[in-house]
């Protein structure tokens, strides 16, 4: 029996390893390509090990930029992307926690109507309402600004729904105990609801940060200035149709850099998840 299980484990590991290799290989190739010079990549004989141009390529792309297509250094673009992603993630959490709190804990006229209106916006993602949204943003003079990048993407129902479901699992007795303990509605929110929601908030933050970071269509529309470009757009711009003009090693370095913040967010926030999960299980 022990032998059988070992065999099963071995098969599982082989399959797992193959899966990891399939996923990891393109990433490795991207990294390798970002450490060679343009000539090595263009002649089609890219080795599978890193080359000697790592510092040169990354230094150039971070602080100087490509020579023709994007013109700006990638560091600035990363900052733009970061500001946009943070604004979207934090803005969404802020709005959805508050709106879910209102929908769950307050009895006001048209409460359910308000909830359903929020719910219906699930069917209207940015891509569907892109023209009216663009018109509004441009009329408000928010083109080429951070608020223009972030605000239209903050409005969404997913967070509200997530928090509503979570708040409904908080026992009513906690609210009643708070009332007897003399806590106001805001104090109950601050002292009890938010601390209990920390893991949900962390989950939503990860999802929304990555969602914001990976935005392509919307930033493409509302930014025209080079200084407001986001990194995801820059990658696309760097790859021009005629191969000769594409500085592949720089495009690959940019791709690597674009991958870093989401990966960091996942790794760092995962700790919080685990901590939250472990603590509730005690």
């Amino acid at each position: 029996m022990v032998e059988d299980r070992r065999l099963g484990d071995a098969i599982a590991y082989v399959i797992l390893t193959i899966g990891v290799l399939i996923v990891a290989f393109p990433v490795w190739l991207t990294f390798v390509a970002s450490t060679w010079d343009a000539a090595t990549i263009i002649n089609g004989k890219l080795p599978l090990y890193p080359g000697p141009y790592f510092f040169e390529n990354y230094n150039r792309i971070l602080f100087i930029g490509t020579s023709s297509t994007t013109r700006e250094p990638v560091l600035g673009m990363m900052l733009n992307s970061f500001i946009m992603a943070m604004a979207i993630a934090l803005g969404k959490i802020f709005i959805s926690v508050l709106s879910a709190y209102a929908v769950v804990y307050y009895r006001f006229p048209f409460r359910m109507a308000a909830f359903w209106i929020i719910f219906v916006t699930l069917m209207l993602p940015v891509e569907v309402r892109i023209f009216p949204t663009f018109k509004v943003v441009s009329d408000l003079g928010m083109l080429d600004t951070y608020q223009g990048l972030a605000v239209p993407l903050i409005a969404s129902a997913t967070g509200t729904l997530l928090f509503r479901q979570f708040f409904m699992t908080i026992p009513d007795e906690l609210l009643e105990a708070s009332k007897i303990d003399g806590a106001s509605a805001f104090k109950f929110f601050k002292d009890t609801v938010v601390p209990l929601s920390i893991t949900t908030i962390a989950a939503l933050f990860v999802i929304q940060f990555i969602y914001g970071w990976n935005q392509y269509l919307w930033p493409l529309l509302v930014t025209t200035k080079d200084s407001m470009q986001t990194i995801v757009i820059a990658i696309k711009k760097m790859i021009v149709t005629s191969d000769a003009l594409t500085e592949w090693q720089l495009a690959m370095a940019t791709a690597m850099l674009a991958m870093l913040p989401p990966v960091l967010v996942v790794i760092l926030m995962q700790r919080l998840f685990v901590k939250g999960l472990v603590e509730t299980e005690k």
């Binding site: 026992p171 007795e173 105990a177 009332k179 007897i180 003399g182 806590a183 009890t192 209990l196």
Partner: peptide, 20 residues
């Protein structure tokens, strides 16, 4: 008068302790 100002204290069936 609101529950906080009635000068009462309540013990709930499921205790309703603040878990955090």
């Amino acid at each position: 008068i609101g529950p906080a100002d009635r000068d009462i204290a309540m013990v709930f069936q499921n205790y309703a302790l603040y878990p955090h």
